[in-house]
Design a protein around this nucleic acid. Structure first.
Lengths: 101, 101
DNA sequence: CAAATATATCGAAAAATTTCGATATGAAAA
DNA sequence: TTTTCATATCGAAATTTTTCGATATATTTG
């Protein structure tokens, strides 16, 4: 973890909806309906579910998620026409290690 | 820790200089000259040292530090005409707990 | 008490972020 | 292979943040 990356992560964490997305993704089963095609949450949750739950426009959510992936907070996996997002616990841990003593 | 406070903390952490200030304050003795009046770093570092090291204007640094104190990241203590700032490890820990699973 | 020093606040210009609708791209379904 | 569905990208307006110089406040010092 370096200062530049930590700053980009901080930017992603400076917005209520983006923070909520990270919270929701702690427990996908609890916060989202089950996937119709994929029968599991192994790769997280698809963009459309996050979009619906957020109340923001599709383009805004796509923009958010792309940025969160770019700085490593999320991991994106394509399955057919769907993109699934899950938390990147490794980076999140590295970030919190960086913040604490 | 709640979503609103976490968002405010995230805003403070979304800027390279503010992040650096938090890093510097991990080891005041290492990153700042000794205080002339106060002979210790028990209450952290005075605003003018942080100002000098930052390269930004006095008003900007004051504004930064005030915000960082408002959201709990820093603890401010007055000694005469000096304000000393130190990290609030308790809030920082609560924040990192909030981020991680 | 006047001057000097440290910090805080104010108002405003510049820069960055937010957010959307429109549109493009990519993949599956008809 | 055209249509449909999911997601990504673009351009632009609105909002927020950044940052400064000027000025105010608070405290010490002469």
């Amino acid at each position: 973890m370096n200062l530049k990356l930590a700053t980009e992560i901080g930017k992603c964490l400076s917005n209520t909806i983006r923070l909520e997305i990270l919270e929701w993704l702690k427990e996908p089963e609890k916060n989202f309906p089950p996937h119709e095609t994929l029968k599991h949450f192994n790769d997280g949750v698809c963009v459309s579910y996050i979009h619906e739950k957020s109340g923001l426009s599709q383009s805004t959510i796509s923009f958010y998620l792309t940025n969160m992936e770019k700085c490593g907070l999320l991991i994106s996996t394509r399955h057919g026409k769907w993109s699934y997002l899950k938390r990147n616990e490794k980076i999140i841990n590295e970030y919190t290690q960086f913040l604490t003593k």
